[in-house]
Simulated assay, not measured.
Amino acid sequence: MHYSYLLTLALIAPTHALIRFGCSQLVVDRIDPLVNPAQAPSPHLHQIIGGNSLKPDMEFGKHDLPSRSTCTTCQPSDDFSNYWTAALYFRARNGTYKRVPQKGNVGFEGQKGGMTVYYMQNQLADFQQRAKVTAFKPGFRMLIGNPTASTKAEADKYRQVTYTCLQDMNTRFPETKDFPKAPCPAGIMANLRFPTCWDGKNLDSVDHMSHMAYPNGDFERQSPCPASHPVRVPQILYEVIFETKAFNNRNDWPTDGSQPFVWSFGDRTGFGSHGDYVFGWKDDSLQKIMDEPCYVNCRTMKTQSMDAMNRCSVGAVVKEEVEGCKFSTLSPNVVQILTENRDPRASRSS
């Protein structure tokens, strides 16, 4: 389904809140405030967007992102949340590795890397968007996906974590659970859709997932939430577009015919895709948007310019080379994780 088609249909029917916006890159760093707080370096590299109050130890319940941030890389100027995924690398047949950069989505072509974020009341193609949702509360955190997943069965536990091989920038289907097996002309898009049912009590949980649940059935069919998690919250969707243009030459791909991409935690299958979220909207700004009958462009959503988004950044806490294309120029720790095809952790991490 094409984005232009979505907008055309949206114009012919009254709608409720679905917002879509771009966020530029804040930093690429080996920190993970959610799963490995205060640990720098964390087990693997992440690409992070959002408010600049980000730090390795964002103490639960005490780190108020809106009050501590002075800028955000996201288009909504009231959104100081932090969103992140692992970084992606290309491994060539000559033994070199290079980080695959991100690029802006349709409508955000001037954006500096980062990703696109959606908040939805119903599924993306539902232009009525009439389900009432409760916005997240200060201190709320969650993640989706499992970096230790190495099979489709393991990845299928997370229903809506997929990839799209972009033939052009409007391609949205088909979606796969593993990395594309052939070059993607316009890039690889990682899609991460978070669960939509909250227990209504806990802002976080030990595994950062148990306080959330999927509906009893399909989100796409507006199925009800389970009794254990009765509060319907917005569905968050990340679209992360990795610019693979420089890596689409088959002569650079491994000689054994395998696909050449590897997550920064060592996964070469793609089944370990995952994303992290820390809520940081100012005051009740998100709830007001979700209550407004609007689609993409909402009157109550304050926005900032692309230049302001691109100017906001923070320096990396872990000082190591992550952009090199040869072992000699990459951090030894980064090389170890990439080449050993595993994430060196004793327990699950993100």
Rank of each mutant, 00 (worst) to 15 (best):
Y277M: 02
E340I: 12
D64R: 10
F108Y: 03
G280T: 13
D64S: 11
Q25Y: 01
I236G: 00
A346R: 06
S223T: 07
N146H: 05
K157R: 14
Y118H: 09
Q129P: 01
G113Y: 03
E323S: 13
P37M: 05
P33T: 02
C325H: 13
I188P: 02
F108Q: 04
S53D: 03
I144D: 14
I236L: 07
P230I: 04
A86V: 03
D207L: 09
Q128M: 02
P180Y: 15
N36P: 06
D218C: 02
D204T: 15
N249S: 09
L143N: 12
R268N: 02
P254I: 00
K282V: 13
F194I: 12
S264V: 11
T116V: 12
S24L: 05
Q102Y: 07
Q129R: 02
P138C: 07
P254T: 01
M120D: 00
K319I: 10
P230Q: 08
V231C: 06
V262T: 14
F90P: 15
H274G: 04
S285Q: 14
P230R: 04
T269G: 10
N251E: 11
P332A: 14
V35L: 10
L286N: 13
H208N: 07
N249I: 00
K288L: 14
R20D: 08
T148N: 11
K157N: 08
M209Q: 12
F247E: 02
Q111Y: 00
A135Y: 05
M115G: 03
N216H: 03
D29T: 14
Y89L: 08
K157V: 11
L338I: 07
A182K: 04
K302D: 15
N105K: 04
A153R: 15
P37D: 14
D199G: 01
Q128I: 00
A17C: 04
S273I: 15
L18Q: 06
G200S: 04
Q128G: 03
E220P: 01
G145P: 15
T300H: 04
N297G: 01
M309D: 01
L143K: 13
L192Q: 15
S150H: 06
P230N: 10
H2S: 11
H2L: 08
F108P: 03
I289F: 10
L45F: 06
S264T: 02
F140L: 00
C197G: 05
D178T: 00
K103S: 06
D64P: 09
S53I: 01
L7K: 12
D284M: 11
S313A: 12
F261N: 05
F90A: 10
T134R: 11
S273E: 08
M209T: 05
N341M: 06
R311S: 10
S210T: 14
G200R: 04
R299F: 14
Y214Q: 07
F80D: 09
C74S: 03
G187K: 08
G139V: 10
A246E: 13
R193N: 11
K177N: 10
L18P: 03
D156C: 00
E321I: 04
V100Y: 02
D283G: 05
C23T: 09
R268P: 02
Y163E: 15
Y158M: 12
F271M: 10
Y83W: 13
A125V: 08
D126P: 00
Q259F: 05
D78M: 01
E320M: 06
K112W: 03
R342Y: 09
T8S: 06
